[in-house]
Simulated scan of single mutants.
Amino acid sequence: MESPHGAAVTAESLGMRGPRGWVFRNVTFSAEPGALVAVEGASGSGRTCLLLALTGRMRTTEGRAETGGLRLPKQAAAVRAIAALGPVPMVSELDPAFTVAEHLGERALLQGRYGASLRSLLRPRA
């Protein structure tokens, strides 16, 4: 029998607080490799931020999480190497609530240019 593809994902009392308050809080679940998980909620409820946190692209402020046996946020770089979000309408598009700098920061994170200055983001990559 073939083993399932994917990575196990767990979260325990996971939460993220931003400058405007709690983005999400008290998220607890587990999913085995190959499981299909649906995250539902109203627009602005923190679904995208939760998925970005579980793929090592955003830092949570409370709780514990693991993706593929790697602890978040401590091993976020290793998680980014094995997990990503695919293009999803209304998720991977530009968010009108973000500033240009926030969008560029996210792009830098996705391209692996961590800690890059805004000026370096505007220059073409070699």
Rank of each mutant, 00 (worst) to 15 (best):
M1L: 14
M1V: 15
E2S: 15
P4R: 13
P4N: 05
H5Q: 14
G6Y: 06
A7P: 00
A8K: 09
V9N: 01
S13F: 06
G15F: 07
G15L: 08
G15K: 08
M16G: 00
M16S: 05
M16D: 00
R20W: 08
R20Y: 10
R20F: 10
G21P: 02
W22H: 13
W22S: 12
W22R: 08
W22F: 12
R25K: 15
N26E: 15
V27F: 01
V27D: 01
T28R: 07
F29W: 12
F29I: 04
E32R: 13
P33Q: 05
L36N: 10
V37D: 05
A38Q: 12
A38P: 09
E40C: 14
G41I: 05
G41Y: 05
S43W: 07
S43Q: 14
S45Y: 11
S45T: 11
G46F: 12
T48N: 04
T48L: 06
C49V: 08
C49N: 09
C49K: 01
L50F: 06
L51N: 00
L52C: 10
A53D: 04
G56D: 03
G56Q: 01
M58Y: 07
M58D: 08
R59T: 15
T61F: 05
T61G: 11
E62G: 12
G63S: 06
R64Y: 04
R64Q: 14
A65H: 03
E66V: 02
G69W: 03
G69I: 04
L70F: 02
L70G: 00
L70N: 00
R71M: 02
L72Y: 02
L72C: 02
L72S: 01
P73H: 10
K74V: 13
Q75V: 00
A76D: 08
A78T: 01
A78K: 13
A78L: 11
A81M: 04
I82N: 00
I82G: 00
I82C: 04
A83V: 03
A83E: 03
A83R: 03
L85H: 03
G86L: 13
G86A: 14
G86W: 01
P87F: 14
V88R: 03
V88G: 00
M90W: 10
M90C: 09
V91H: 02
S92C: 12
L94R: 13
L94E: 12
L94T: 12
L94W: 05
D95K: 01
D95I: 03
P96Q: 09
A97C: 12
T99S: 15
T99F: 09
T99I: 10
T99M: 09
V100M: 07
V100W: 05
A101Q: 12
H103D: 07
H103W: 08
L104W: 03
G105F: 07
G105T: 15
E106K: 13
R107T: 15
A108V: 04
A108W: 06
L110N: 02
Q111S: 14
G112A: 10
G112R: 07
Y114C: 06
G115Y: 08
G115S: 13
S117T: 15
L118F: 15
L118G: 04
L118Q: 13
R119I: 10
R119H: 12
L121H: 14
L122H: 05
P124Q: 11
R125M: 10
R125G: 11
A126C: 11
